[in-house]
Write a protein that binds this DNA or RNA. Structure first.
Lengths: 349, 349
DNA sequence: GCTTTTGTCGGTAACGTACCCGAAAAATAT
DNA sequence: ATATTTTTCGGGTACGTTACCGACAAAAGC
């Protein structure tokens, strides 16, 4: 493995000059620069990352902008663990991870955290884009300062982000359509349940994207399952109970229930309490509450996307882009795992 | 972050002396050694891996002892990819991976490769223990020379290996029992199919361990499914066809077929050709042949264990043990993924 | 008494890269 | 012509660790 020393010897210049063209800094004539570049190409020079990290006094700061972990957003426990795992591995490489946690129901808290992020002037940003307009503003700031940013869990495709880490949301809805069709064939009635304080911006809303995917399956397969839906903005168990009671009163022939996010546990609680345990129920995320109902047989399927792995890969993508300068795939689509009562004991988040 | 320099300053010795006690080499009096060790503890000193790798001229050689990839052992393509992925990442750390590929049906070829491995005098060994006695011999050699070794894909529990990377084989058979019971309830007849040239050594044989797991499910659940079985030692498609024809003639009431390894594709071929596509069929491994029949609906479930990930983790475990000296879990059980027609497009090996 | 061995320790050159500082050379101004 | 600026480059030190070489004493052998 040839290094700068060998390049300098061949080019008949000093190491410092080689170093200058490698980092394309000023102070090298065009002539010698091209001469050195040719030698670099010829030797297929790969800088020694070990030596580089040791010599470089640069410290890298990565900002992480995700919801804080609460009862309602228990999902984010796993990505945070993955982020911490990556942080531990990269600590030796002078990488500091700064988490900025916001309330996924409070736009203001997101805006506030964004301000803190910008004040930090990080070398990379990992962000869960819950609030589209505000995330776009952040992204524009990053683009202006040439700071790479990675989206996790859901995407904003038109932005020139470094990459997206997460599931193909549309496809995961589509998969749920297939599963329902598999278990409860034509023409049983399906209830779609969206539980979220804020349900709008159809283009980028995770929940609505999944619903789209679900519906598109039945359209493409030419199936005539009737689909009814309810958007529940009062996200307490009481609010869910109330809303679902009404739905089942209006539609007693519902055979399957699709919950577009991790709140499927609360829906399961309602179904159990109202003696509807035999209804086919599926939803998202490997959370304690959900697993309990999965084991009881109230929930039939959980769709999961390895959230810990997402957090880990998110940080690693930033690292590869910022530090290693190796190309990263702009899409890092996670597998869509089907977790059932049978295999849930062996699932790894 | 304090380093050797700081330790030396506090102990009032040179860094050379500190280095000697860190690597517990000779040449340090007990008194100063304990003094330095105390300071090391107090400071919670963590050696800088970057600097260590740069300064150390040591090159590490890891031997990988797995079956070569063939039509019959297509499974091993993925672990090899994972191993190569790890090799690429660790190349910067002066780690060389040496694959030694053997024929899983030829004990002699395994013995020959073991000899080559021993000649290399590697710093670590990753081995798929297909031949138990011969693997034990290798392990004894390793123990004698203090060379760590990792088992991949299947385990030999009594040996003091560094760790095992792979599924809980017994549990994956148990899971299959649950799945069969779920789809084809009591008391439908089940056929167990073992396809392998060598079927013995019940204690460590993957196939028989899975069969045990399957049977134990029905025993524990108190189900009365009749189970018949066939061991197919002529592993050609023709041999499989012949054996299964006989089984189905003797037992026309078979409702489910469990194939204990990746040869489920060949079984599917037989079922399709003999017009038995409606029989519930499940087996192992995400291989092209199998996926094709999964999509056709001949195979109902494939059980997979992220073989690429296994190879990757195997090498990484060796690295952590040998180079980083960080503790590694003695068991690294992979998740037991259920792959169906619905989610197979999104599976990542 | 001497030499030789053994036990302790310090000094220091690497490892491959980053980057500061100052010098030489070239270009421009006076 | 000289003085001044600008461009171009090399020397050298640092990063934190490894590991070799040798210094110096005390202990052992003659």
């Amino acid at each position: 493995m040839a290094g700068v020393k060998e390049i300098a010897r061949r080019a008949n210049v000093s190491i410092a000059t080689v170093d200058r063209v490698i980092h394309n800094r000023t102070g090298v004539s065009e002539k010698t620069k091209s001469r050195i570049n040719k030698i670099i190409d010829d030797l297929n020079y790969q800088p020694n990352l070990i030596a580089r990290t040791l010599a470089s006094r640069k410290v890298f700061d990565f900002a992480v902008l995700i919801p804080h972990v609460s009862d309602e957003s228990d999902y984010w426990r796993a990505p945070l663990l993955g982020i911490e795992k990556a942080a531990a591995e990269l600590q030796q490489f002078r990488i500091n991870i700064h988490p900025f946690l916001f309330d996924q129901n409070e736009k203001e808290s997101f805006i506030k955290q964004v301000e803190m992020v910008l004040k930090l002037r990080p070398d990379g940003v990992l962000v869960a884009p819950y609030f589209i307009d505000e995330t776009v503003a952040l992204a524009n700031h990053c683009d202006a300062t040439n700071t790479p940013y990675v989206f996790i869990n859901s995407d904003i495709p038109d932005l020139p982000s470094t990459c997206y880490i997460g599931p193909d949301i549309y496809q995961s809805g589509y998969l749920c359509g297939e599963l329902i069709d598999y278990i409860a064939p034509d023409p049983s009635k399906i209830l779609v349940v969206n539980v979220s304080k804020e349900i709008k911006a159809p283009r980028y809303n995770r929940l609505l994207r999944k619903e789209e995917g679900l519906r598109s399956y039945f359209k493409q397969a030419g199936k005539a399952h009737p689909i009814v839906k309810t958007d529940i903005r009062n996200t307490t168990d009481e609010g869910i109970r109330k809303s679902l009671s009404k739905m089942f009163k209006d539609h007693p022939d519902i055979r399957s229930v699709f919950v577009s996010n991790s709140r499927v546990g609360s829906v399961a609680r309602f179904l159990e309490e109202s003696g509807r345990g035999d209804i086919f129920l599926l939803g998202f995320d490997f959370l304690e509450d959900n697993i309990a109902y999965l084991k009881k047989g109230i929930i039939d399927f959980l769709i999961c996307n390895r959230p810990l792995e997402q957090g880990y890969r998110g940080i690693m993508s930033l690292y590869r882009d910022v530090v290693v300068h190796s190309p990263v795939d702009s899409q890092n689509l996670m597998p869509i795992d089907i977790v059932t009562r049978q295999n849930c004991n062996y699932y790894q988040i």
